[in-house]
Amino acid sequence: MGIDVVSRPPADVPQGDAVASEARDDHALAAARDDAWPGASAEKRFLRYGMMPHMLCPGCGHGIVLDAMLRALARRYETLDDVAFVAGIGCSSRVVGYVDACTLHTTHGRPLTFATGLKLARPDLEVVVVTGDGDGLSIGGNHLIHAARRNIDLTCVLFNNEIYGMTGGQLAPTTIPGAYTSTSPKGNHEQPFDAARLVEAAGATFVARAQSFRTRDFEEIFLRALEHEGFSFVEVMTDCTEYFGRTNRLGNGADLLFSQARADVAIEADLAGRPTLQEVPARPVRPVMEMGVIHESRRQTLEEAMGLVEARS
């Protein structure tokens, strides 16, 4: 537990609850860390240590995704003063609290609405939306397609773990057919959304799908999404070991990561020699999905159309 999500700090730096309970010790801790690690990478400086210990479960892929996002941001920004993270409700949405930026933890399903208002109020800010599959595709599905239609210059990362983690493992609109959840005790009989294709059809001008398994690929894709002018959508496959993994007996965090690899058409050839997902008859196996940048085009953004920013070429 504690701040293991990045790496272990020196022993004289307070950890865990002692950190969280002291009003300002997070900054002291960050300073101590920077002193202790002169070469500490930029993304570590972007973490908000006062919010630690984090609430992610062992084996959860969300920390891997956040780490890659911070690496990409570090390649683009010296500080996060002008970067706003906007998130909804759910495990994925909680990660914005761990970023030392302007962070807005909104209501369930509605981060894109807050982000729309913020971006139109301050078009100069980099606004990154973090949402989950329940938050972004179920309760907030309407806002997702409208943000895509408007082509507002937001970067939306949808953490897809195929289940409602925070509420205890219920069925999501992304749960694969046959999968068991606490509200699909006989297996899911609904077809899941293909989020990337949905958002592309709605008008997004940058659409990609990536994996927590291939974190460097995700980092590159997220950086391109940040650079893209217009609505950028990145669906990132990440695993819920505690609910999805256990309920469906898919093994531990590592097993689930490799199951992502198995489901990636782009890297199928790569798989020889890697451990395979434990195969249990009648248990769901991830379908093969396209990974990488699925769609990229240029169209007038909402801010350009409204005259809030100079029209770019």
Partner: peptide
């Protein structure tokens, strides 16, 4: 100023709050 017609009232209020945090009277 900025006028935007949102997709529903939940979105309207969300946008208003986002804009307000961005410094606008909304």
């Amino acid at each position: 100023g900025v006028f935007i017609q949102m997709e529903d009232e939940l979105a309207s209020m969300g946008a208003v709050l986002g804009a307000s945090l961005g410094g606008r009277r909304a």
